[in-house]
Design a protein around this nucleic acid. Sequence first.
DNA 1: CAAAAAACATACTAATTGGTATGTTTTTAT
DNA 2: ATAAAAACATACCAATTAGTATGTTTTTTG
Lengths: 196, 196
Amino acid sequence: MKKSALTRHNILTKAFELIYANGYRASSIDDILTNTQVTKGAFYYHFKNKEEMGIALINEILKTHLSKKFIELLESKDTPLESIYCLIHYLLIEDRLLKTELGCPASNLIQEMTPWNTPFSNALNNLVNEWLNLLEATLEKGKKDGFINKEINSKSVATFILSGYWGARNLGKLEKSKKPYNTFLEQLKTYLKTLE
Amino acid sequence: MKKSALTRHNILTKAFELIYANGYRASSIDDILTNTQVTKGAFYYHFKNKEEMGIALINEILKTHLSKKFIELLESKDTPLESIYCLIHYLLIEDRLLKTELGCPASNLIQEMTPWNTPFSNALNNLVNEWLNLLEATLEKGKKDGFINKEINSKSVATFILSGYWGARNLGKLEKSKKPYNTFLEQLKTYLKTLE
DNA sequence: CAAAAAACATACTAATTGGTATGTTTTTAT
DNA sequence: ATAAAAACATACCAATTAGTATGTTTTTTG
């Protein structure tokens, strides 16, 4: 990677960590600078302002990392329902970027930003729609291949699964524990069975 | 109500509105003051600092309003599962304090505060545990009365329902629409049926 | 009614914020 | 090699923040 691209990437990854931990507004540019050893001049050379950096972070860090995992894991098992369970299990238990006590980075940003920042809203909507579409496509394919009851509404089920995932992360964050994750996964498993 | 108690209540209700809409850190004390016509002297007479006000707000506005609804609606129908559905329906669709585009106030505060503020965490944990316990008790009673499958784990189911509710609110907030609420409610209904 | 306490009002402060102005250094193209 | 552009560095600024110091007014109590 070119040196300049490295600086940019350095800013984004550190900013992601800080914002994931403390929120967007509570992560000051000065914070990011002292954590990256980058100066303010460099920062404002790469980004017009804080907002633009935040949106770049969504598209280049969050989207890159998580959408890749969605695509990969949704095809990892023999049946679509197993794959979906595997994905949620991965996100809740295994992923090393995500931390129990910090919740879901996308959900955090939705909470903080959507009421007042439209560019953020759009970027996040994009991200989430991609995830929902991937889930929906997996379910539809499952219907076609005879793994899933044709009566179910794939879009609704996708919504329900993502909602549950987010809520579980919220509860895990509150209790600073993976325990709610396991109870959620247990219930998810029985719910997924009803879709067969 | 005494005039002084009225001032205090005035601060809390307005602060709740502002914090629900913009978050805790983004709602400045000056904001609250201009919106309430209360002066800084009065504010700091009633509250030691901003944190103490925020916690009072959880216990006196959120808890008072929502726990009351939980208790009331969880006994409103003939069967526990109908009552639970009725409660979630009320929270998502009917409650006038809660707004689609602003999500769930408790969830918002959990996201923003739990990673860095212990007193807030404790107050929120309290609140949420009360809700989980009310749900669990309803389910247990349902088992006893023969309305619900005795095999189910009431605590897990309560967790699953609350998680889904929170996630649905998050999605509604993102899409600024009640549509995710309806799809969630539809799925919730079929899920609840499997508990009979 | 008067003294004391409760309730409120005003003016300030030190720290932090996002952003800019104005540089210097490094890289690239000819 | 050298001029031009890209990449970075430093010093500043105006606005906002939570909180305090020092009052005045209102209410309560003896």
